[in-house]
Amino acid sequence: MRVGVSYPLLLAGLGLLTAILFVGSLVTGPAGIAFFESLEALLTGRSGAASIVMQEIRLPRAILGVLIGASLGLSGAALQGYLRNPLAEPGLLGISASASLGAVLAIYTGLSAAFALALPLMALSGAFSAVLLVRLLAGGSAQAITLILAGVAVTSFAGAMTSLVLNLSPNPFAALEIVFWMLGSLKDRSMTHVWLALPFILVGWTMLFQVGRALDALTLGEAAAATLGFRLERVQALVVLGTAASVGAATSVAGAIGFIGLVVPHILRPFVGARPGRLLPASALGGAAVLLAADIAVRVIAPERDLKLGVLTALVGAPFFLWLIF
């Protein structure tokens, strides 16, 4: 299936959509600040409480929405292209599961209560341990299947460890906090979270955007791509480390948010003539748009119940994915 849309037009359209949703995210919230008032409060900073709400609650939330959504969309597209498998997603390499484990340990040990950044920092170390382990297990070989198997092993191990922590949690409140964190959310994040995640996310994006032409060549398989002059070991390292940096940072500040990295590249593939290189920027913008939309939706649907973002993306994503396949 291919859809005739010019590529610059597609990117411009997705960019515009993301910008609109970014503003939409800024003006949505329980504080009930009017549209123009809220933007004025954000830009001038002279409106007292409204400015505090805008600059310290809604702005970081919207920025994280863009950063995390784009990381999920981009790394999903890169992994699908590298592994030549439309079922690949950022969680495949064990990065999300291990980041979650790190966060869960921070909650369980009480470190996160002692100082707030312990949680994202431990989640980040979890993500990077996962990558080291996957690279160690898969060896230096550029074989995609080995990488998938190593990722599956790390994912199940991290999952089992998380279950163990839940199992041993001292009281139901700790268990509930852990479970809620794992559902994924952008609620009550601050600019500190943005500054913590941003460098890793930017480094990850820089790595992932370099592999576009190699991913195109991999359409012909590994042997042909290698003889077209691409160093596949380098491509693998860039994809794996780029995913670890961006998705690891994303998970560490927002928890595990599923389906965006799987579904967004899938939706956009027909619009770029199925070319993996062109899918990267499109999928990054698409991921940002979808995450912003989902984060607006959780606030509009159930403002008083704190509906978790990861729950909504999975709830909508799974049936939508089925519909796409059939």
Binding site: M1, T219, G221, A223, R269, A274, R275, P276
Partner: peptide, 8 residues
């Protein structure tokens, strides 16, 4: 092996 992976 005449490998082609995506509908390009």
């Amino acid at each position: 092996e005449r490998e082609v992976n995506w509908p390009v």
